[in-house]
Amino acid sequence: MDNREAKFILNAYRPGGQDADDPRFAEALEQARRDPVLERWFSESIGFDSTITKELCAIEVPVDLRESILAGVKVSRPLRSPLVRWSIAAALISMAILGSLIWHNTRSAHLAGWQSQALDVVSSLVRNESSFDVQSHNADELLAWLRANHAPAAQTLPQNLDKLASVGCKTFSWNGKPVSVICFMRPDGGLIHLVTIRTSAESDRELKRQPRIMQQDHWAMATWREGDNVYMLALQGPRDQLRAYLL
């Protein structure tokens, strides 16, 4: 081993001495002990590394970062672009107008209580009568927030839903059971909503993994059970549009 090779290896040697017993360094360390020039270089190098380490470890961290992380609050990520922001606003307004016109005709005896209430919540959101608990274009963030707040959250999203930008999520309680709603932006500017509730044995016995699709006036809905959760995917439009998101 020449000095160039020894230096190459010793550059990975940590200044704290944690690698003293690592056999990969043994020969290079021995070389440094034998060669005073290499030994001096190594000593200088360790000193240099220690100084850099000390200074870099003293870089200050934003004072509110810890609290922001723990609270699940995003402090620095704005909406992606004004265009996206306006498209969301336009979609919400159009949904509000449409929703207010047709809402009273969408109820059905086939809907479970939580489904009916979920559509109430969705309607309220699109009419701007209530607000999201959290807003983000990243559905993973919304799912993480839901889990952190002990709300039902999907383990995995349907593949085509996962490709959409999320808008926000909201939680509510139905008969004492937590329910969550995540709203996504569709490519055509409309919205699609994923509602999640934990399975309750008596009411969800008939539900299967294969989605059951329903069309109620302007609402297309699919309901299925997976693991410990029951899901409902809903959009205002024909059921064929909904099928595309169940893949």
Binding site: P62, L65, V75, N138, E141, A144, A148
Partner: peptide
């Protein structure tokens, strides 16, 4: 960038939570 660094750090913990 300090803002990006804070955002990356938060995102990492979000992903951990998920």
């Amino acid at each position: 960038s300090e803002a990006d660094a804070a955002d990356l750090t938060q995102q990492t913990f979000f992903l951990w939570a998920a």
